[in-house]
Amino acid sequence: MFIRIVKMSFHQENISKFLENFDLMKEKIRNAEGNRYLELYQDKNNPCIFFTYSFWETEQDLENYRQSALFDEVWTFTKKLFNNKPEAWSVDKIATLK
């Protein structure tokens, strides 16, 4: 399992559109094959910046999602709202402290 972090920055006037669409799509994304966890964060200092944080069983599961009609629908809508190029990282968890 690995973690995918995506940073997205939106025009202020597009934040509500993004959040409305995310609310409609979040269960579908979470239920994509291999997705085990999904969270959305908003930056405390810059409300235009958001991060998704998701756990995937395998890199192929993420790639299958990225090639799916669902991803195409989500990304086609979302990328029109950006004010900057998105950034993404795939990372392995090293430690968890509770």
Rank of each mutant, 00 (worst) to 15 (best):
residue 3 I to Y: 14
residue 4 R to I: 06
residue 5 I to R: 05
residue 5 I to Q: 09
residue 7 K to W: 04
residue 8 M to E: 04
residue 8 M to D: 01
residue 9 S to Y: 02
residue 10 F to S: 00
residue 10 F to W: 00
residue 11 H to L: 10
residue 11 H to A: 13
residue 11 H to Y: 14
residue 13 E to F: 07
residue 13 E to K: 10
residue 14 N to L: 04
residue 16 S to Q: 15
residue 17 K to N: 12
residue 18 F to A: 03
residue 20 E to Y: 12
residue 20 E to W: 08
residue 21 N to P: 11
residue 23 D to V: 12
residue 23 D to F: 08
residue 25 M to N: 14
residue 25 M to F: 12
residue 26 K to G: 09
residue 27 E to D: 15
residue 28 K to T: 13
residue 28 K to Y: 13
residue 30 R to H: 13
residue 30 R to W: 07
residue 32 A to G: 08
residue 32 A to C: 10
residue 33 E to Q: 15
residue 33 E to K: 15
residue 34 G to P: 07
residue 34 G to S: 10
residue 35 N to Q: 10
residue 35 N to R: 13
residue 36 R to H: 14
residue 37 Y to Q: 05
residue 37 Y to H: 10
residue 38 L to T: 03
residue 38 L to P: 01
residue 38 L to S: 01
residue 38 L to K: 02
residue 38 L to F: 02
residue 39 E to R: 09
residue 40 L to Y: 02
residue 40 L to C: 03
residue 40 L to M: 05
residue 40 L to T: 01
residue 41 Y to E: 02
residue 42 Q to A: 01
residue 42 Q to G: 01
residue 42 Q to F: 01
residue 43 D to Y: 01
residue 43 D to I: 01
residue 43 D to S: 12
residue 43 D to C: 07
residue 44 K to C: 04
residue 44 K to M: 09
residue 44 K to P: 01
residue 45 N to T: 09
residue 45 N to Y: 08
residue 45 N to H: 13
residue 45 N to W: 06
residue 45 N to I: 07
residue 45 N to E: 11
residue 46 N to A: 07
residue 46 N to E: 15
residue 47 P to K: 10
residue 48 C to N: 14
residue 48 C to T: 11
residue 48 C to K: 05
residue 49 I to C: 06
residue 49 I to K: 05
residue 50 F to E: 00
residue 51 F to K: 05
residue 51 F to D: 04
residue 51 F to T: 04
residue 52 T to Q: 08
residue 52 T to R: 07
residue 53 Y to R: 11
residue 53 Y to H: 14
residue 53 Y to T: 07
residue 53 Y to P: 11
residue 54 S to P: 12
residue 54 S to V: 09
residue 55 F to N: 13
residue 55 F to G: 11
residue 56 W to F: 03
residue 59 E to N: 14
residue 59 E to Y: 13
residue 59 E to T: 06
residue 59 E to C: 04
residue 60 Q to N: 07
residue 60 Q to V: 04
residue 61 D to I: 02
residue 61 D to P: 02
residue 61 D to H: 12
residue 62 L to H: 00
residue 62 L to Q: 00
residue 62 L to G: 00
residue 63 E to D: 10
residue 63 E to L: 09
residue 63 E to N: 10
residue 65 Y to F: 15
residue 65 Y to D: 03
residue 66 R to A: 14
residue 67 Q to G: 13
residue 67 Q to K: 15
residue 69 A to M: 13
residue 69 A to W: 08
residue 70 L to E: 03
residue 72 D to N: 12
residue 72 D to C: 14
residue 73 E to S: 15
residue 74 V to G: 02
residue 74 V to S: 01
residue 75 W to A: 10
residue 76 T to H: 09
residue 77 F to Y: 07
residue 77 F to P: 00
residue 77 F to L: 00
residue 77 F to K: 00
residue 79 K to P: 01
residue 79 K to C: 04
residue 80 K to D: 06
residue 80 K to Q: 10
residue 81 L to E: 00
residue 81 L to I: 02
residue 82 F to H: 01
residue 82 F to T: 00
residue 83 N to M: 06
residue 83 N to W: 03
residue 83 N to Q: 10
residue 83 N to H: 05
residue 83 N to Y: 03
residue 84 N to R: 06
residue 84 N to Q: 10
residue 85 K to M: 11
residue 85 K to C: 10
residue 85 K to I: 08
residue 87 E to F: 07
residue 87 E to W: 04
residue 89 W to C: 12
residue 90 S to R: 07
residue 90 S to P: 04
residue 90 S to F: 12
residue 92 D to P: 03
residue 93 K to Q: 09
residue 93 K to N: 06
residue 94 I to R: 12
residue 95 A to Q: 13
residue 96 T to N: 08
residue 98 K to V: 12
residue 98 K to R: 15
